[in-house]
Amino acid sequence: MTKKDLDKRKVTGPDGEKFEVDPLRDYFCQERPRVHDPARRIWEGFLNWARSESLWILGYGTGCGAIEMRPLMTPRFTPNKHRIQWRPTPWQSNVPSSAAICPSRPQARGPGSYEQMQGPKYVVALGSCTINGGMYWDSYNTINRLDKYLPVDVYITGCMPRPESLLAGFEKLKTLIREGRGEGQNLYAKHFDEYKANQKKIIRDWDMPDYNW
């Protein structure tokens, strides 16, 4: 999709009638993200337990560190034992785990996938590059801090992190969720303008709708 596809245009239908298409209004939601308050105490505790026991992951691998997510799927590290399952679409997962090196272009698309996810969602950032840029800290094309663009719950250091440390990171995420501290979604909604401005700072020719759901 290019920027041109988002412009208003006249379309001729199969019967010859002409009508106007405004993709931003017709195909995408224009609603801003909202802050969702957590439920009552015990009930929320139960729900948080369920959420922590059923982490559905979208592997958003934009760099070399993503290679370490593949061994994690294998029988040797048994992610299922740690209640981690992979899902193929962003709509159905809760945890985008962002891969180590963050080239600016795919990383600006990351928020799109993040916004398509529903409900309490948690970001796990793999690798040193997501923390301070790692070995690519002075590159013209990699971001330095992922938390300027997405609310990150857990950082996993390492270049690259081994699958064991990934598992440790996910265990940490689970304790965070059970303690009720996994409110990244509300954080994102509260500071939406700030995050969006930072994302737009990377991609000057913003060719996406502002809200991706």
Binding site: A50, E53, S54, P75, Q85
Partner: peptide, 28 residues
């Protein structure tokens, strides 16, 4: 999973997934 020598999910995992999916706060 066991045939493939993996650990596999717990047999009651579908219930937890179901609870989690119904309990998500937003939908579009």
């Amino acid at each position: 999973a066991r045939v493939g020598r993996r650990h596999g999910i717990r047999f009651y995992q579908p219930y937890i997934d179901l609870v989690k999916n119904y309990a998500l706060r937003s939908n579009v």
